[in-house]
Amino acid sequence: MNILEVKNIAQKYQAENGETIAIKDVSFSAEKGEFISIVGPSGCGKSTLLSIISGLLKPTAGEVFVNGSRVLEVTSHIGYMLQNDNLLDWRTIYKNVLFGLEIRNIKTPENVARAEDLLKKYGLYEFRNNYPSQLSGGMRQRAALIRTLAVNPDLLLLDEAFSALDYQTRLTVTDDVYGILKQEQVTTIMVTHDIPESISMSDRIIILTQRPAEIKEMMSIDFNMENRTPLSCRNNPNFSRYFNHIWKELSIYE
């Protein structure tokens, strides 16, 4: 069964100085465990699309279904990670990681134990009593991911979640995160500007047109590799083929 169904989404923003049509018509679906990237020219409506899927924003038309039920507001099935880690600087890493559980009033001993497990598994447990300012960018990003995963979402939305990191850190963090997500079997929709990043992580890539966004092309990414990781598949001969294709599709809009 599809875990996510996006059906004929359209979005018009109203402001005092006029109307902006951000999304014209977008439909797609995602299976459990799938990793989908969304790429498109800047300002085409990618963040808008994620906000709609998350339930933060009501679309002007169309419907979103997660696990078969319609998304009308923010639900506990969906985890949404923004561009900045947004760790609250007055909370320790431990308390930051529990933030989502607190907000959703599900800070049960089992959930706390799960969050602690994630901290241990992903190398942050010794730093749990540190404050965000004492951690490196990569560690902060991991902490933010654990905060999102601690509420146990079936569907994870990432909006340029790694773009604040420098290139080196970014490569290792995407490798880490990819491992975490595959292990936890989380379905992921990721918006990115970085074409290599999208190829290296995704099972499918959705290429959007210029604003107002429509789906221009849906690409399946297949490397025929066992134990594929974002770093290892960068050396695969298919990688540059995919890259050139997406590059060409997007450079029309430059």
Partner: peptide, 19 residues
């Protein structure tokens, strides 16, 4: 962005204020 982050967890206005 902090407020947006809290909203992604479905925070109410009261929770956003207090937390």
């Amino acid at each position: 962005e902090y407020i947006r982050m809290a909203s992604t967890f479905g925070a109410t206005k009261g929770q956003i204020f207090l937390k």
